[in-house]
Amino acid sequence: MKHLISMADLTHDEIIEILDMATDLKEKRQRGKVTDLLKNKSIGMIFEKSSTRTRVSFEVAMSDLGGHALYLNTRDMQVGRGETVADTAAVLSRYLYCIVARVYSHDTVKELAEHSSIPVVNALSDLEHPCQIIADLMTIREYKNRLTGLKYAWIGDGNNVCNSAILGCALVDMEIVVACPPGYEPDENIVEQARKMGGKVTVTHDPAEAARDADIIYADVWVSMGDEEEREKRLTELAPYQINSELVDLAKQDVIVMHCLPAHRGEEISAEVMDGPHSVVFDQAENRLHAQKALLLKLMC
């Protein structure tokens, strides 16, 4: 694995290796042990979109590992004034050890990887968000002590995070059922790719079908960045897909409820569930840090 552009860039064994490393790094951080394994190395973080968790977790990850993270807003870069993505990748490759890119178009991160001689990490595109799913798998394993054989229910918009979840579940032999309104289904090519990988993927319009006997229930925002003009339409069409107590009651008694944040209580998830005993969302958010530290070590060492 040279780059992480898609969850499909990983193998099952690589995922387990990264998760094992992340768990070890988490334990060492809790004990205050120094892990400056990337001392004197720098990464560049190209951000076309705003961020809280992604930016902070990558910056802290590099600090914890003894390195340095440069935040590169495209409005302040020459790429914002017409320099090509290819030239940007070639130049940054001479300065840095890794490029982390949070972009609007998946083609941008693919082009960065094509023209870069250093690793490129997709920190979110319109098609996928693999960094989130690695942290999610870490969280699931912490709570369930396994990954294989679980039922994962995605309820809501079949967006970029959903696409990566579908591929991630296929890689670890976890069933995934996606429940969404007509027109909000996940990418058809991703679904077909996951099935060819041996994944058990069901796409339905019935949230109860997804939630029934689920081990994991997952929510994400209904109005993502770039969808603001469709806000009222989306809120209306997705309203029956709110994760609330009635839906959680259909799942297993020890179900965990996940959300990649930011959350809008009262929209995609009720406050009662978000703040309730099944919610693991803040452990999930924390694990972005540990999982990304492991990913950086995997790519840069």
Score class of each variant (00 low, 15 high):
residue 75 R to W: 10
residue 78 Q to A: 08
residue 91 V to I: 15
residue 65 L to W: 02
residue 42 S to Q: 09
residue 86 A to L: 08
residue 87 D to P: 11
residue 60 V to F: 04
residue 66 G to H: 03
residue 62 M to I: 10
residue 99 I to N: 00
residue 85 V to H: 00
residue 99 I to D: 00
residue 83 E to N: 09
residue 89 A to T: 04
residue 59 E to S: 07
residue 89 A to M: 07
residue 80 G to C: 07
residue 76 D to G: 01
residue 88 T to P: 11
residue 63 S to R: 11
residue 42 S to V: 12
residue 64 D to H: 15
residue 97 Y to E: 12
residue 50 S to R: 14
residue 54 T to C: 06
residue 104 Y to G: 08
residue 49 K to G: 09
residue 61 A to G: 09
residue 96 L to C: 05
residue 90 A to Q: 13
residue 54 T to L: 09
residue 68 H to A: 05
residue 41 K to R: 15
residue 40 N to L: 06
residue 76 D to F: 03
residue 56 V to D: 06
residue 109 V to G: 01
residue 66 G to K: 03
residue 50 S to M: 10
residue 100 V to W: 00
residue 61 A to K: 02
residue 46 I to N: 00
residue 42 S to C: 14
residue 46 I to G: 05
residue 85 V to G: 03
residue 64 D to R: 14
residue 100 V to D: 01
residue 58 F to L: 04
residue 67 G to E: 06
residue 98 C to Q: 03
residue 49 K to Q: 11
residue 107 D to N: 12
residue 84 T to A: 12
residue 94 R to P: 12
residue 99 I to F: 03
residue 48 E to T: 03
residue 52 T to F: 00
residue 50 S to F: 04
residue 49 K to A: 06
residue 47 F to S: 04
residue 80 G to T: 07
residue 109 V to N: 00
residue 71 Y to A: 12
residue 75 R to Q: 15
residue 68 H to W: 11
residue 71 Y to D: 10
